Simulated assay, not measured.
Amino acid sequence: MTERPSTPAPQPRLRPGPIAIAFATALALAAVWQWSNVLLMGFGAILIAIALRAGARAMHRYAGIGLKPGVLLSGLAAVLVVAGIVAWAGPSISGQFRQLIGSLPDAWKQIEDWLGQSSIGQFLERRIEDAQANGGGGEGGDLPTVFSYLTGTLTTVFGGVANLVLLITVAIFLALDAPMYRAGALRLVPPSYRARAGQIADELARALARWMGGQALDMAVVALVTGVGLWLLGVPLALVLGLIAGLTNIIPVVGPFMSGIPAVLFALTQGFDLAIYVALLFVLVQQAEGNLLMPLIQRYAADLPPALTVLAILAFGSLFGFAGIVLATPLLLVSIILVKRIYVEDVLDDWQGD
């Protein structure tokens, strides 16, 4: 009688204890902090990938083009649009931008002259002179200093170009094989929670896509209205100033100041009255955008509380610098959805609906 081979007893699964979990959590937080720039770049690549997938889905719906060819065609279309804009308006924008940069010293000189004639300006000037006298300081125009400045500038420019190329490359790979990356990420979640995690991931993708669509429309309207308004006022650099206003409008609260200050400074070189009119134009455009356009867009996109938006800009800006400021709004959107779905609904079991 032949004996059946005995089946090996099932091995007990390794379950990490509380100390191992705490150590792993601390290690993960340290890695997140150390690689924060890489993670921000990855988040930016995800945003671009979502936009490419949205274009691919539109091509698939209306033209029957496959998703992967649609992703490549969407990227090619974006490149052609940018190239067309550069070819059509690039020389004019470049010349106006150089003129804007060249006019800023004259505008600042006028501000200094005005401040020098006022009591507030004289007080500030005395404070600055006292600070310089107490702090000392040597000559700033020596050769090593200039060489270091040029080297740092070139390093920043080439680093920015390299990061942009990497960002676009990663975004294309993510967009081409989005289901594979989604499935791989869900494999890191315990099986009993994967369905819920998939629902939350899909909701995040839809919310970010709506936010990007609404933000693109908002930026285009602000750029157009600002450019036309500056042109009607007779400001010579209406095209580039309107473009700056549209691009910086991606940053809530801070963006209008980033675009308004150069515009007012340049208008000041043309006359004090024109500078006042330009400042009023920017105030009117931002009021109309905040009270009329943005509420309409938020009905389709995402309604973010203004107070939390300001706090998010301060928090992410202090943590991650300028990149954190630019990505503060989508990061806040992701944080709100995660807190609502995971903590409020799943942990607190508070299902009140949206």
Rank of each mutant, 00 (worst) to 15 (best):
E203A: 15
V189C: 01
E129A: 15
S118W: 04
R187A: 11
A178N: 03
A195H: 08
I200F: 11
D142C: 07
L143R: 14
F147V: 13
Q117R: 15
R182T: 11
E125P: 00
V157C: 00
I200G: 00
G137H: 07
F173G: 10
T156S: 11
L167E: 06
N134A: 15
D202K: 05
T151I: 10
P144F: 03
T155W: 08
V157M: 09
S192H: 09
L188C: 02
L166S: 11
R196K: 12
G137V: 03
D130G: 01
T151H: 13
R127V: 11
S119C: 01
G116L: 01
G140A: 07
G136M: 02
L188Y: 05
E129C: 01
D142E: 13
E112S: 08
A133S: 10
E129S: 12
N134W: 02
Q199D: 14
G137E: 04
L167H: 09
I200K: 02
L124I: 09
D202G: 05
L174T: 04
T169E: 06
S192I: 09
G140N: 07
A133E: 12
G136I: 04
I120C: 00
P190H: 10
T145H: 12
A195S: 15
A201P: 00
A171Y: 06
E203G: 13
T156I: 06
R194P: 04
